[in-house]
Design a protein around this nucleic acid. Structure first.
Lengths: 256, 256
DNA sequence: CAGTGGTCTAGACCACGAA
DNA sequence: TCGTGGTCTAGACCACTGC
């Protein structure tokens, strides 16, 4: 009979495709291996290229694939765990943190940041903006903008390097002199702005995990950090129990 | 002259669209207001519907919009900050936590979870699987699967409610009796499985923030929690200094 | 240069929610 | 039943990478 299939739940094609591809990735491909190109895959599965791409997009979002224009689609390595929790009682730039300063400018912070800094920052509204990047295993994993009100680094000599990495280090150094009161952290999903995307080696709009940290000192918000981590390659870890050590791999998503 | 436009950098249409829409949202629309439908918007901007949708998708990813099939596209309220950090020294299910148990089954955990549980869990490989949901302001914000090896709750009477919310509460109650050693948390991007999506009132594949927590007791991993938060509506907060309150929106472009 | 993924179009039909 | 967003198609051209 032709009616052997009830076809009660018409699952979207791209969803089914994603499942099939996901299983193929587990069994038939090694990390770093390049997949057939999109036109080839689409015709092989008998779907339009746009549909195939919808499935690939999801797999990339889940960190299973990596796509690069002009190159191809490759099987991604497991996500790297980047620690975001242990510098809990240290200022940014403290000895041994994973960040490296890039440059420093003076600018008006975005409203969302301005709202977090106490209302009494400099009248003109300008603050120091330190740009840093975080590199793990040779790959850039995060880009940060650190907003520091002038009031937090009063002794910063205006004379010294007015911009660039040198000035960034000066600001960070001055920051260390404050007694930290505590901090406050939030994580949310965002999309990479053009400048962040460039430093992260991704296209603008790529999904990122935005970690916003407020540093408190002397009863004020002494600084605000907005760090954008590549969502495709990173898993943010919070080592709440500093003593236990782990070495696990990426979590995978499976139906129980 | 006809050459007034240099057009040096052909920014993608959907990217430009997103910017324009984003500004319009800030100035011309109120939270909860419904936008014109996609066909209308597309023709108004002179682009294909697919292109318009690409812009809307990004805005939804950033938590600015909410789209519901059969209803329309509405302006989303600011993301809710959900605390993920303060139950640091409490077991899941401790008094006053934000979760409510839904049911409890026994099943083989996914490999990624099994790898985190010590190798010596029950031979058959089955563990208790407690399902819980987290509701904030009447809206479901997260769905959780809590994996508890039988060894962690040895005194659980097999007699009592073999499944359902009642048994879930029993497992959680037994868990409290262990002395907690510490915990360990990770956050990463994922896409909602069909079952989670249903509880979160989203379509399968919707972006979620996956929070994986390991609970340690008696030198073992006593339980593993995999919680999926709606990425569009949630901002995960880690109250390292629990008292301060915030309400910001998504990251915005820096003023140079 | 050829080949890749990224963008874009102009249609079509489907699944869902509300009236 | 109608209007919404969700899925899908079969093309086209562009931007980038590597040779």
């Amino acid at each position: 009979m032709g009616t052997t299939q009830l076809e009660t739940v018409p699952e979207p094609k791209y969803w089914h495709l994603k499942t099939v591809l996901s299983e193929a990735l587990d069994s038939d491909f090694a990390v770093g291996e390049i997949l057939p190109n999109e036109r080839e895959l689409a015709s092989r599965f008998g779907v339009a290229r746009a549909t195939l791409r919808q499935a690939l997009e999801q797999l990339e979002l889940e960190g299973r694939l990596q796509r690069r224009r002009g190159v191809g689609t490759t099987v991604a390595p497991p996500r790297v765990g980047v620690d975001v929790g242990t510098s809990r009682h240290g200022w940014p730039g403290a000895a041994g943190d994973a960040w490296q300063p890039v440059d420093c400018t003076s600018a008006v912070p975005p409203v969302a940041v301005a709202r977090m800094l106490d209302k009494d920052f400099d009248a003109e509204g300008e603050v120091h903006v330190v740009r840093r990047i975080r590199v793990t295993n040779g790959q850039p994993v995060a880009a940060e903008l650190l907003y520091v009100p002038h009031a937090s680094v009063p002794d910063l000599a205006a004379i010294e390097a007015p911009s660039g990495a040198a000035r960034a280090r000066s600001v960070l150094r001055e920051l260390q002199r404050l007694a930290m009161n505590g901090q406050d952290r939030a994580v949310e999903l965002g999309s990479a702005r053009a400048d962040d995307a460039k430093e992260l080696d991704r296209l603008p709009g790529a999904p990122v995990l935005v970690v916003t940290t407020r540093y408190f000192a002397e009863g004020r918000t002494a600084a605000v950090s907005v760090a954008t981590y590549r969502a495709d390659t990173c898993r943010l870890t919070f080592g709440d129990s500093g003593d236990v050590e782990i070495s696990h791999h990426t979590q995978e998503r499976r139906a129980s």
